[in-house]
């Protein structure tokens, strides 16, 4: 019923991009420039011009995505084209360079472009892979629903802990008040929290239940409740992790695009200025 951007309209834009690349390769193969292949030949200028135009058009996606104007073309079509034309740049820009690399602004632009394309490729992978994992992890619940359950468990834990002495009470209180889901980027991406107060409280209860307070029904109950809460926390952290994975690549993709533009301007300017 639904079509992903990868297969959109029977791979329409894969076909367009492949055609473009094949054309470039064939021309490159039959082209006999003066000296070694370089960006200064007619084919080099042609490929450079096409590449630059594609880059500017790909950048416009950021605006198109946020302009909700009337029109028949769906954003999905834009994204499908964005993906395949972006990948086509690998070949077009490489041929444009004539495989001449060095420590200069020209190669800098090339490297920045490759970073943008690679980060975008990860984005595509994330978009294809993670949505399903996220749904499976949710098990039909919403994140808010999970947090509500956690809050209920906290209340229950504190009621039980009330009668069990300071040590237990402090641990349960800490678990209720200082447990965090998410946080900094690394924490979000890891999907774990090794210093989680809930986990600490759970371990303490397990220790007590196995040893000195093995016949205390309250402690046993807390083991049960905290284990359930730990499960839910794992679920919530996994949710946050997957969402972060689907977004984190944009923190490379977008800034590097702007860096690429700066380098591209320098590249074009220097080529014409020092000609």
């Amino acid at each position: 019923m639904n079509e992903s951007v990868v297969v959109y309209r029977g791979f329409r834009y894969l076909k367009v991009a492949t055609l473009l690349c094949l054309l470039a390769i064939v021309l490159y193969a039959f082209h006999t420039p003066i000296g070694q292949p370089n960006g200064g030949s007619w084919l080099g200028y042609g490929l450079g011009g096409i590449g630059a135009a594609i880059i500017l058009w790909l950048m416009w996606f950021g605006v198109r995505k946020r302009r909700y104007k009337p029109g028949k073309v769906k954003l999905e079509e834009w994204l499908s084209a964005h993906v395949y034309l972006g990948l086509a740049l690998i070949i077009i820009a490489t041929l444009h360079s004539g495989f001449q690399f060095g420590w200069n602004v020209h190669t800098l632009a090339y490297v920045l472009m490759m970073v943008v394309i690679l980060s975008g490729s990860f984005g595509l992978y994330a978009y294809v892979r993670y949505p399903r994992l996220m749904t499976e992890n949710r098990r039909g619940q919403t994140l808010d629903g999970i947090f509500t359950q956690i809050a209920d468990l906290d209340r229950e834990c504190r009621d039980v802990a009330m009668r069990l002495g300071d040590e237990v009470n402090d641990a349960v209180l800490a678990a209720a008040q200082r447990t965090r889901v998410g946080g900094g980027l690394v924490r979000q991406l890891s999907g774990r929290n090794p210093n989680c107060p809930t986990l600490a409280a759970l371990k303490l209860m397990q220790k007590l239940a196995a040893g000195p307070r093995h016949d205390d029904a309250g402690v046993r109950k807390l083991v049960q409740l905290l284990a359930k809460k730990d499960d839910l926390l794992g679920q919530a952290r996994r949710d946050v992790q997957l969402l972060a994975m689907m977004q984190v690549w944009l923190f490379i993709h977008v800034p590097f695009t702007f860096a690429l533009i700066a380098a591209l301007v320098a590249h074009v300017f220097s080529v014409f200025f020092y000609w």
């Binding site: 639904n2 995505k65 769906k74 954003l75 994204l79 949505p131």
Partner: peptide
């Protein structure tokens, strides 16, 4: 539906 980048919304 038009604004869904991945075609998930129908």
């Amino acid at each position: 539906v038009r604004a869904c980048p991945t075609g998930a919304a129908i």
